[in-house]
């Protein structure tokens, strides 16, 4: 089964059973590779529907201060593209006594680290390491020809964004080009700041839901609390939680003493997901 099939099967199953879920975002290498690996393993144990793994970039223009800081920390610990591949493949191989992990992983990147390697090379490497999908923050559909072709050839899901400002026609195209899910940006602005999924936002999400048909819809940018999750999941299938999750884990890890950091990361992950889970309907 290809990664796309696996991702779609899993997300469509979620949809057909009426179950909805939280999809956390993790900046790869924040706190070091071992911390990222511990967080991924905990998320797999918690059986979240999928996870976004951020490839750090020096100039993340779509991100607010919390994720910028996480990108900087990850780069400062020496997280290269190769290192992210290593994290992914180690996660896929599983730790001692663990099953091979089948948690879908969507890699989230900015264009330049991938352009640097060439789209086909970069996407193939990600697919081989075990990525199921790819999302690029500064790659609109107009510029995505090479990425889309490379993703389809490598059998991973290309995923595109739609925003409240996106026209009807481009919404349709973004949905047609996306596999796995389409990413709806819940509000104008960068990641992180508090959001309120008010009536205009709900109208936008319901429009995306209608156009998406059978394709699952994820919503993200500024989801921080159980109430946000509940509002996000009124029309969407997945609530993506980035800044708030990354910051929560970062605080826990940086306060823990060295031998306890991995346990702290796992515990913080579990706590955070438990609090947010109360926002997930039935």
């Amino acid at each position: 089964m290809s990664a796309v099939d696996k991702l779609e099967l899993r997300l469509r199953a979620l949809r057909s059973t009426g179950r909805k879920g939280i999809a956390p975002y993790v900046t790869a290498g924040d706190g070091g590779s071992a911390v990222t690996l511990a967080v991924l393993r905990e998320l797999a144990d918690l059986d979240v529907p999928c996870v976004e793994l951020g490839l750090p970039f020096s100039d993340p223009i779509a991100d607010g201060p919390l994720l910028q800081a996480a990108n900087d920390r990850a780069l400062a610990t020496g997280t290269t593209f190769e290192e992210v591949l290593e994290i992914l493949s180690r996660f896929r191989r599983g730790g001692p006594g663990e099953m091979g992990r089948d948690l879908p992983v969507i890699v989230m990147s900015y264009a330049n680290p991938l352009v640097r390697r060439g789209w086909a090379n970069a996407v193939n490497a990600l697919a081989r390491a075990g990525a199921d999908g790819l999302l690029v923050a500064d790659l609109p559909i107009e510029e995505a020809g090479a990425m889309h072709a490379a993703a389809r050839a490598a059998g991973i899901a290309p995923i595109f964004f739609v925003a409240p400002t996106t026209s009807e026609q481009r919404t349709t195209t973004a949905i047609q080009l996306s596999r796995g899910f389409v990413y709806a940006i819940g509000r104008l602005g960068v990641t992180g700041a508090r959001t309120e999924l008010d009536e205009p936002a709900q109208a936008f999400l319901s429009r995306v839901r209608r156009v998406a048909g059978g394709l699952p819809v994820a919503v993200g940018f500024g989801i921080t609390s159980a109430e946000d999750v509940s509002a996000a999941l009124r029309h969407a299938d997945l609530a993506i939680v980035g800044s708030a999750f990354v910051e929560h884990v970062h605080q826990a890890v940086s306060q823990a003493v060295a031998p306890r950091k991995l346990d702290a990361a796992r515990l913080a992950t579990r706590e955070f997901l438990q609090v947010l889970a109360s926002g997930v309907p039935g």
């Binding site: 264009a111 559909i141 510029e143 020809g145 964004f161 925003a163 400002t165 080009l177």
Partner: peptide, 23 residues
């Protein structure tokens, strides 16, 4: 796939690599 008009490029350079909200 919508094709980019050539007016957005200078040879192979330029383009519109922007977050979706800015499109």
């Amino acid at each position: 796939m919508p094709t980019t008009l050539d007016t957005t490029r200078f040879g192979t350079y330029g383009g519109t690599f922007a977050p979706e909200t800015l499109m």
